[in-house]
Amino acid sequence: MNGFPHAHKGRGAASNPEGRFESIRHHAEDDGWQSLLLDEDAPRPRTEVTDERAKSVITRNDSPDIAFDQALNPYRGCEHGCIYCFARPSHSYLNLSPGLDFETKIRAKGNLAEVLRAELAKPGYVPKPINIGSNTDPYQPIEKQWRLTRAALEVLAECKHPCTIVTKNALVERDLDILAPMARDKLVQVFVSVNSLDNHLAAKLEPRASAPHRRIKAIRTLTDAGVPVGVLVAPIIPALNDKDMEAVLERAADAGARSAGYTTLRLPWELKALFREWLALHAPQRAEHVMSLVQQMNGGRDYDSDFRTRMHGQGVFADLLRKRFEVACRRHGFARARESRLDTSHFVPPRKPSPQGELF
């Protein structure tokens, strides 16, 4: 049964509501009995990782507001626990909660490298940059043990296949031995997401991601190694972290970032209630103001899925954010994050497994 919502140290969600496809709903009521046995006294939610056998790993999209055609996500669910993550509702397809389940019950595609190799070897495959981390972070903490992102990079590097990476974890530095040679061949670009410089806010918004200053340092480390890096100020949450936009862009530029992009908060499906719950716990005095501005940016609703406006919002406040971003980008000489110069001309399909090995 779901308990009463409360903050869990190291976790973003405060509860574990059923997904939208569940037919049974549980609701906790305080009847006055055993009142000392509160949810706060229960053990902290532990991360559970399940090995998932994937049939395919490259997904494709034709959304006009997304800058890539192909994507790869080594994990379903994300231990970072960002309360604003638009991918949370996808856990409902697994009959799991978009709440705590999303950040504690992770699916790892253990056969990712094998399946990726087979897909790249298909006759007629046309190479286009593959984005790694479009849905969940490829460098979330469990990557230290599972190393699936690294396995995917090894396959892509072997095949001279270009990719982009989106992350908010400094663990990306671990793979510089792969990323630096790929960068020399114009095969990789990394985007580091930093939406605030406030460590206290980040610890509540994105509890298991690298601290903001550590992500800035990762930008410098990658840049010094010759890897092109962009910064994503995402998502911008009005009246919560929007004040840091210019400061983030300045720090990222000083660290060597070459391009920049931003998105505003998106609250699809179950995420609406989860985010409101988070506001009530962590920012109660400004919760009403935050949601008022969010609705102003979404045509009067908590979320508007229109492709034309969902990434940056609409209305007066959204226009102000856009102008602020453009001015800061001009000041620091940033290119647009959508501008990619990755090279697909060197792609070499991987060899299919052969009983004769590498003799021929």
Rank of each mutant, 00 (worst) to 15 (best):
L148D: 06
F347C: 13
P268H: 05
L37N: 15
R330L: 13
I83D: 04
L265F: 07
R208P: 02
A234C: 02
L156V: 06
L359R: 13
S292I: 09
W269F: 15
I236E: 12
A283C: 05
R258P: 12
D224C: 11
L201H: 05
V192D: 10
V188S: 03
L37Q: 14
C78W: 02
D185K: 14
K105M: 10
K168F: 02
D343K: 13
Q70F: 08
P98D: 09
G99A: 06
L201Y: 13
P353V: 09
L342F: 13
I216H: 10
R322K: 10
E40T: 10
G226C: 14
D242Q: 09
A118N: 11
L100Q: 12
G333K: 01
Q285R: 01
A252M: 06
L38E: 12
H213S: 04
T47S: 03
G256T: 03
G333W: 03
K105P: 04
P350A: 01
C163S: 00
L293M: 01
L120V: 00
Y75H: 12
D304G: 03
L72V: 11
T223C: 08
I219E: 13
T167I: 00
K243Q: 04
S345M: 05
K168C: 09
M182F: 15
A151F: 01
T344W: 04
I24S: 07
F317I: 05
N61H: 09
E250Y: 05
V316G: 11
I216F: 02
S35Q: 02
A280E: 00
Y303S: 01
A253C: 12
N111H: 06
E339R: 15
E250K: 10
D69T: 06
A335V: 06
Q356M: 14
E158Y: 12
R266L: 08
K204W: 06
F21I: 06
E288L: 08
S340H: 15
G333I: 11
P45A: 01
P349S: 14
S193M: 06
T136W: 06
H161W: 12
K144P: 11
V188T: 04
D185V: 11
A253P: 12
N199F: 08
R174A: 03
V233G: 06
A337W: 03
L249T: 08
D304I: 07
E48T: 14
V316T: 13
R301D: 04
D62I: 10
E270T: 08
S15L: 11
V248Q: 00
R266V: 03
N131V: 13
C82V: 09
S193N: 08
